[in-house]
């Protein structure tokens, strides 16, 4: 520990996955030893592997939660507070990995994004941060308007601009507000339906992974197609989510 207000930890290379428990040496150990219960050094694994899952997207959340709580009971620093400093360090690393993995996998969008990242996809930045950043630096944000939304978005943006102008001069047009509110509802419905579309893409992806697991070769072309379709759904969903947020802000809620 070097500094008190913000401590730093040394970045140590993560040890290779061990085959035996470092303490009792008997068991094949993953996160903790089945035999003596000791926390093991964290292995450099992705979140799916951490939970012993294959890279499928349709997840049994109840089972994931159950594993999460069971592993928490072994890995949490509170339960390793009397161990040696090295074990405490591993417990902290393992426990944060467990929490990060659980948090990412239990959320449908985060889970999909994470899988795509593992598959080497760089997702388009649609976040509010990117918007703010673009605004403040004057850069044009990289953002693709989904073609089927072009016309609608164009109209909506004109109406939003009108609303902002009216607000500035202290007027308000109840009909305009109602119209924008109606469109917001529509967008929210669309956002919801895109989640169903995403679930359908999961099914396709999982089927492909299953075929692969069954020993049938999957072409890189097919893999790429499935990825691209998911990216497309995510992009459209993000776009609509941001739109809903902008409309909400313009309406003042």
């Amino acid at each position: 520990m070097t500094n008190s207000s913000l401590t730093t930890i040394t970045a140590k290379p993560v040890p290779e996955e061990t085959q035996t428990c470092w303490s009792c040496g008997t068991m094949r150990a993953v996160h903790f030893c089945e035999s003596c219960g000791k926390v093991q050094p964290p292995a450099p694994v992705d979140y799916f592997t951490f939970f012993g899952l294959s890279r499928k997207l349709n997840l049994d959340i109840a089972a994931l939660d159950k594993d999460f709580y069971e592993l928490s009971r072994k890995l949490h620093p509170d339960l390793n507070a009397r161990a040696g400093s090295q074990e405490q360090e591993w417990s902290l690393q393992q426990s944060s990995l467990l929490n990060d993995a659980h948090r990412t996998l239990k959320d449908p969008i985060k889970r999909t994004q994470y899988l795509l990242k593992l598959e080497g996809v760089e997702l388009e930045e649609q976040s509010k941060t990117a918007t703010e950043q673009a605004r403040s630096t004057g850069q044009v944000k990289k953002q693709i308007v989904p073609p089927d939304l072009l016309e609608e978005v164009f109209d909506l943006n004109i109406q939003l601009e009108e609303l902002r102008i009216q607000k500035k001069i202290g007027e308000d047009d109840p009909a305009l507000i109602e119209e924008i509110g109606r469109q917001k509802l529509e967008l929210e419905e669309k956002q919801e339906s895109l989640l169903h579309e995403l679930e359908f893409r999961w099914k396709m992806w999982d089927g492909m992974i299953q075929r692969e697991q069954n020993g049938q070769p999957v072409s890189e072309e097919e893999r790429k197609q499935e990825r691209d379709k998911m990216v497309d759904v995510l992009n459209r969903r993000n776009y609509i989510r941001n739109l809903v947020r902008d409309v909400g802000e313009a309406l003042g809620n």
Partner: peptide, 12 residues
Amino acid sequence: LIDANGILHVSA
């Protein structure tokens, strides 16, 4: 890394 005390640690 935010530890169980809610305190931040940084490594690079």
